[in-house]
């Protein structure tokens, strides 16, 4: 399904139009542009009001915000508010953990969601398929606080199920909450469990939108199921995959606070692998209540994510400009 750039009317002769009309490619296109802009307008205004207007607050990151002085009256302090993020050797660790864990999440999440979506598509006509969909959505309703109870129920030293199994097979029980090295795996599982239903339903919607004619033709050519996936399904939902990955890259510096804070139970011995930018900022600032430093941390995360997306987008554009974000 190609997204051609054929625009009706563009090739027609363009007699006697004003400069503005000519700029928009003729009367027909001027009207099209007008209509389309009108359509976009409610959304544009909503974003302007609820997203762009508050962005004047970004200056807080560069100010020593004092309630009494307000946004404009507070003193400028340059990059002072950013210092606490980079001052210690922890800076490297939280950056590494955030990037690494989020990269793992993006890759495993995308693959798992895709696989589940493909599997569900295979049995879509079966009566049980809708139960799968519903079941997969359950975890999305469960808050991380509650997940932390379950994980603890599974892993705690005394009554934990996992250790009971290990000892039943003659192994030594593991102190899960003292050993940082297990946690990338535990967190990845928790994240997958929580998000796979959500991700797979987007891909399933994309797959279901594919014209069945393609599969018919492939069947006539004798293509196997795997070949159909390889040559029809995946290429056709590639734009969707790319857009979702690009969007996740934009958030790669923002960790899921609930997951990283509640599930390891804010246990200091696990920080080497579980401490991320968001939990660090929370711990450092919650007792200080410093709005400016919190704003600085958020700004830093946004800028890095922004740069990464620009790079990724540039890369995608070079390969296929239709797939790019902008």
């Amino acid at each position: 399904m190609t997204t051609g750039t054929m625009t009706p009317g563009a090739a027609k002769p363009q007699p006697h139009h004003g400069p503005l009309t000519r700029l928009f490619g003729g009367r027909r296109n001027l009207q099209t542009t007008l209509s389309l802009t009108l359509m976009a307008l409610p959304g544009i205004i909503a974003l302007l009001v609820f997203a762009y207007l508050p962005m004047v607050g970004l200056v807080i990151a560069f100010k020593n915000y004092r309630f009494a002085d307000g946004l404009w009256g507070s003193a400028w302090v340059g990059f002072d508010n950013f210092r606490f993020l980079f001052g210690t050797d922890v800076a490297w660790r939280i950056t590494r953990n955030t990037l690494l864990m989020n990269s793992i999440f993006i890759i495993t999440g995308t693959v798992a969601s895709l696989v589940i979506a493909l599997l569900m598509n295979e049995v879509y006509t079966s009566w049980v398929s809708k139960y799968y969909q519903t079941l997969l959505f359950f975890p999305y309703f469960v808050s991380w606080v509650i997940v932390s109870y379950f994980v603890f129920g599974f892993l705690n030293a005394e009554t934990g199920i996992v250790n009971q199994v290990i000892t039943a097979f003659g192994g030594d029980p593991i102190s899960w909450y003292r050993e940082a090295r297990y946690w990338p795996l535990i967190l990845t599982f928790s994240h997958l469990w929580n998000s796979v239903g959500f991700g797979s339903i987007i891909y399933l919607a994309g797959i279901l939108a594919i014209d069945p004619a393609y599969y018919e033709a492939a069947k006539i050519d004798g293509a196997s199921k795997l070949q159909q996936v390889r040559y029809i399904t995946l290429p056709l939902i590639l734009p969707l995959i790319i857009i979702l990955v690009l969007l996740s890259i934009g958030r790669i510096f923002n960790a899921d606070f609930g997951l990283f804070y509640f599930v390891p139970r804010d246990n200091p011995q696990l920080y080497p692998t579980t401490d991320v930018i968001d939990t660090f900022v929370y711990r450092s600032l919650v007792r200080l209540g410093n709005i400016s430093m919190a704003a600085a941390a958020g700004f830093y995360q946004s800028v890095v994510g922004f740069v990464l997306v620009l790079l990724a987008n540039w890369f995608v554009r070079r390969i296929n400009r239709d797939y790019a974000l902008f």
Binding site: D80, F84, G87, T88, V90, Q269, R283, L288
Partner: peptide
């Protein structure tokens, strides 16, 4: 000393608590 305090809290949480 707000910057230093923020950094120190992180260090203490990790190493002093145990």
């Amino acid at each position: 000393i707000e910057t230093e305090i923020a950094q120190l809290i992180a260090v203490m949480d990790e190493l002093e608590r145990p």
